[in-house]
Amino acid sequence: MKNLIVIFLVIATIGTVNAQTIYSTKTGSASFFSKTSIRDINAKNDKVGVVLNTATNEMVFVVSIKNFVFPDALMQEHFNETYMESDKYPNANFSGKFNEKIDYSKDGVTNVTATGKLKIHNVEHEVTEKGTITIKDGKIILHAEFTVELKDYNIEIPKVVFDDIAKTILIKIDTPLTLHKK
């Protein structure tokens, strides 16, 4: 009977995620750039939420669309209301996994690729993007640059638009993660 209870306890504990493997941030940064001959547009979001499970190499990014800050407030309003429809679709997400084995215990920079589901404007696509992962002093810094085609995510640009917007948008991600505290 005693043995059984021990077995019971062991089984019940196995598989619970060790908190030591969860890294997160709520202040990651995501920026985007739209370049055309007429106008350059850029915006930055310094409140990106990221969580990484180093045990499984899985990660989740949550981006609140309304937290993108533009130099021009009117542009920000158009971005939210007309293009991203952030009242209807308040966030963009990435949920995926690193394809490489990563030694999180060693300091250094590693080139990695991540594959997963990228959801923007309520349209989801399976993507694989390149990036780097930097490990230093117990921090994990994820860095990536990739492009997004607006039409892939049903983001319409009106024909008569006076603010010229590129069809392909460059996105930069820079998120230092720290060990998640409960």
């Binding site: 019940a12 997160s24 709520k26 409140k47 969580v51 989740v60 937290n67 308040p90 949920s95 998640h180």
Partner: peptide, 20 residues
């Protein structure tokens, strides 16, 4: 338990906690 935990860690950053 691990199934629940797996979903748990993914929801550590929620949209509500990000809006300012």
């Amino acid at each position: 338990k691990p199934m629940i935990a797996q979903e748990d860690w993914k929801s550590l950053v929620s949209l509500d906690s990000l809006n300012t």
